[in-house]
């Protein structure tokens, strides 16, 4: 499976060869993705990589110029009514109906689906309890804190019991405690069998939650698979961290150039250099006298590498 975490569960979302251009600029260029029941697929990429456009095509805001999207086997473009019934969408921005209370937001959302969710009032009551929103049921959404707004957004996306849930940066702007509680909710939804597609700028979030990752750059998939596989593909096996202000900085730079690695990524006063096992051995042989730290790569390294390449 090319390093991908395998799932024996049903395939709920399949996109092949997705293309989208805005004017002369191709924003998404041949993206393939899959998400199974009980899987969280994390989409990563720098700003402008095509994540949001891909997601918006998947949940129907944009029509692909090319390619195919199937939700639970049904073609997205030719049967939007049926496929929209199968998906839940939590957009990055809050899109509550501010004329309604928290409870009525959930109830009214149920009116926008056919067939109507069965026993809607009971379903809403359960969601209010599960998402710890019951005490705010009669409040207006704009009076809630950021964490509870996110909870309401996710709860609302689940009113009609979808099979696939799209979460576009679900924890952006939340404090650590609120983020973790959202993670727990998302993890619980995965265990219940939802297929979840997640975009995030928080690398720890992607790493903790995602079963598989899809990394986009300039509208193309540059790597896909389990997080460790993706890191190995794109970053390397090890990351060396060393002081950027050492006298040997010039020699290190030259060595990196000779190795075809290019410029190191700089964070404050440190350099972060991703290397494979052989590269690490050569670096150690060349600069054995230097003090440096070796650590495993993480998604922050990947993100920095992607954005550094862009710059």
């Amino acid at each position: 499976m090319n390093g991908k975490k395998a799932f024996a569960t049903p395939l709920l979302l399949q996109a092949q060869g997705l293309m989208k251009s805005f004017g002369p600029k191709r924003v998404v260029d041949g993206v393939d993705l899959q998400c199974h029941s009980g899987e969280i697929l994390g989409m990563l990429g720098a700003n402008g990589a095509g994540k949001t456009t891909t997601l918006r095509m998947c949940y129907g805001f944009l029509r692909p110029d090319g390619g195919e999207i199937r939700i639970d086997g049904i073609d997205r473009v030719s049967d939007p009514d049926r496929t929209n019934r199968l998906i839940g969408v939590c957009t990055q921005d809050d899109t509550f109906d501010t004329d309604f209370t928290v409870r009525d937001n959930l109830l009214w959302f149920g009116h926008y689906f056919r067939p109507r969710p069965t026993d809607l009032e009971t379903r809403v009551a359960k969601l209010l309890t599960r998402f710890d929103l019951a005490r705010y049921a009669d409040a207006k959404p704009d009076t809630l804190s950021g964490g509870y707004r996110r909870r309401l957004m996710i709860a609302r996306a689940l009113v009609h019991q979808p099979k696939v849930l799209f979460l576009d940066e679900p924890t952006t702007g939340l404090d650590p405690q609120a983020r973790m509680s959202v993670w727990e909710l998302v993890d619980g939804l995965r265990q219940e069998g939802l297929g979840i597609v997640l975009t995030t700028h928080y690398m720890d979030e992607a790493e903790r939650l995602s079963d598989n990752l899809l990394v986009l750059k300039e509208g193309r998939v540059v790597s896909a698979g389990a997080p460790r596989t993706v890191l190995g593909d794109l970053v390397g096996e090890h990351v060396i961290v060393l002081d950027a202000n050492i006298p040997e900085a010039g020699a290190v730079r030259q060595w990196l150039k000779d190795e075809g690695i290019g410029e190191p990524i700089r964070i404050l006063n440190t350099w972060q250099i991703a290397l494979d096992g052989a590269g690490l051995a050569r670096f150690s042989a060349a600069f054995g006298q230097l003090r440096f730290e070796v650590r495993p790569p993480n998604l922050d390294d990947l993100f920095l590498q992607l954005t550094d390449d862009d710059s």
């Binding site: 805001f61 009514d81 921005d93 809050d94 899109t95 509550f96 109906d97 926008y112 056919r114 009609h160």
Partner: peptide, 14 residues
């Protein structure tokens, strides 16, 4: 301002 349309568009409403 209210983003009511955006919310509706995440449903079967187009």
């Amino acid at each position: 301002y209210q983003k009511t349309w955006d919310g509706q568009l995440t449903t079967q409403v187009r």
